[in-house]
Design a protein around this nucleic acid. Structure first.
Lengths: 346, 346
DNA sequence: CTGAAAGCGCTTACAG
DNA sequence: CTGAAAGCGCTTACAG
């Protein structure tokens, strides 16, 4: 590959001038520009991204650090990433998919992260990703709250999880439900903690005895086992002789689907016997189930867009103050999987 | 951030020795290693990835170039990317999500791609991504055939699209169907060309008149309009008075779902009136529809894994010959959305 | 096993 | 607007 010296020589200018033409950071005369471009074309020259990065200290990439382990994207992640990629490209940046801890293990000779900033998806308690990023002095934003960490000043984009759970409870309790199976997200996810707290509060405000053993957490599992969680937990909760559960709140669409399968296998019906509410699922998929699933619209794609904006602001790529956190709104999409306790469809 | 000179000074060794300790490319004495590590710890030193890249000419990242435009991941892409990310991390590499043309437009001061190799997802006819990559001399593999390009020697991973369409036709024709609506992928995708060719051949081998206007191609659209394609095309094909279509072959799950909605709205039933076959969809989602959808299992995750392996072999990271192309097997998952033409469930 | 020195391919004050 | 030169932070023959 041709390098800047080759172009400079062929165009009869200095390296600095070639640099100016390509970086556009300093003006170049029309004449010089033309000669440089001509030479560059002839030599098939393109500036070396790495060499440029070394001196500018910018990689023009942001990291998207996804949880490690046998991780599989859900529809939510999917849409979130869509939002991130689309918005990121608006600033001329790229997205580096990063499974930091997994990489650490495999690569004894670690090195700095070749990114200008990072988005941390789904923070957990004592999240190593956050500590790593903090130590590396890489600016980052989180999608979800940081809990139990000495790092607490990172901008955050989030849904209003407290509000969301309260709305769900109000809706379901309004239908007469008092006994819930809550199929929450992973146990260490801070979103789960937020939800559980709000759930307990909502119940006690409504003078309902919270039953901690009916709040379950998604294990860290492989995609193929994914459907098993909702199924097994549902069977266990619904199958006992003293069963009282009349409504299931499911973290995502898959969990809800597998719960539906369990309900069906137990000879029960949705929503006549059991209502199902999905917190974060793909709306078009949920609409395709029978009955169509009621749930929240969390706007995952918008979460991604806002996360990028926040980060770009922190990187001074986007102008404007650090408005701090950003809460993306959500609303209930009512379909047919929840009915009043009498069995009467809503 | 501390740099290599700082560590060398503090440890009382040369830069070269510090480098050896971290890169592990040359042996270092136990003593030197310890002193370097101690100094590094004290100074919080980590090698600068960019500086290293500049001299080694390796970025330790591969690009995943996804189609540009208002692109949204499907469940297929989702699983594919999962396979890519997981496998890539096995070699200590990272994945850079790239929407090349989109970036070009936004970034007048273009630069070389900071990647060691690339995976091109869903090649199209005269695909600019492929030309760009080829010009840049970046090794790449494609997921799908390259057609109508001067670049033809890139390793490829693919499903056997010809075989797949033939199997589908055999299956459906075996059920008595002779009039199909084929809701294919995007018009410029080479996979669509492969499928269409195989479809036409299968029909004529069975003495069925191919009806080109019943082969439709997915427009390049936004996620929210995505469901519209299958719906509109289905309505148009099924609504005409002289309708004969009895089976729909749908590219993906969303298209199939929207077709189902259309069928329902027209007062028809699946599979009694219309059979639906999904080529590339999320199997668990398809299982959740009513009726559960019959379709192919294309193993998207495995496609991703094999694409990475092929690329790693080309980059000499993975040993072994360039076995050339890799065809990932597929099979029909029979559920309840296809029945024999008489209306009798299969 | 280790050190001194050159070099990877750019950008950027500095001077003009 | 342009050039000469220093420097970004590493790795790597080369010599020992």
């Amino acid at each position: 590959m041709a390098k800047i010296d080759d172009v400079a020589r062929q165009a009869g200018v200095s390296k600095g001038t070639v640099s100016n033409v390509f970086s556009q950071k300093r003006p170049a005369s029309k004449q010089a520009t033309e000669r440089v471009m001509k030479a560059a074309r002839e030599l098939n020259y393109v500036p070396n991204h790495i060499a440029r990065s070394l001196v500018t200290k910018k990689t023009m990439a942001i990291g998207l650090t996804i949880p490690h382990g046998k991780f599989f994207f859900s529809a939510f992640h999917n849409q979130f990433i869509n939002g991130v990629v689309l918005e990121t490209s608006n600033y001329g940046y790229r997205v580096l998919l990063d499974m930091i801890p997994a990489l650490e293990v495999k690569t004894p000779s670690l090195a700095s992260y070749p990114i200008d900033g990072a988005i941390v998806l789904g923070p957990e308690e004592e999240d190593e990703r956050i500590n790593l990023l903090y130590q590396s002095r890489i600016p980052f934003v989180t999608v979800g709250k940081i809990i139990n960490s000495n790092v607490a000043d990172a901008p955050m984009v989030n849904n209003d999880n407290n509000q969301i759970i309260r709305e769900i409870c109000r809706y379901l309790i309004g239908l007469g439900h008092r006994d819930f199976l809550f199929l929450n997200a992973g146990e260490r996810k801070t979103v789960s903690l937020e939800r559980t707290a709000a759930f307990m509060e909502s119940l006690s405000e409504n003078r309902i005895d919270p039953q901690p053993h009916l709040i379950r957490y998604k294990p860290e599992i492989h995609s193929s086992e994914y459907m098993q969680y909702g199924y097994d937990e549902s069977v266990q909760a619904l199958n006992s002789p003293e069963r009282k559960v009349t409504a299931i709140i499911a973290d995502d669409d898959r969990t809800a689907f597998s719960a539906m399968n369990a309900i069906k296998d137990l000879g029960l019906r949705v929503p006549d016997d059991i209502s199902i509410f999905v917190i974060c699922g793909d709306l078009s998929m949920m609409n395709q189930a029978t009955p169509a699933l009621t749930g929240m619209d969390l706007q995952p794609s918008e979460l991604g867009v806002q996360a990028v904006k926040l980060l770009m602001r922190k990187l001074n790529v986007l102008e404007g103050e650090h408005t701090g956190n950003c809460i993306v709104s959500s609303r209930i999409i009512e379909r047919s999987s929840c009915s009043s306790i009498g069995g009467q469809a809503e």
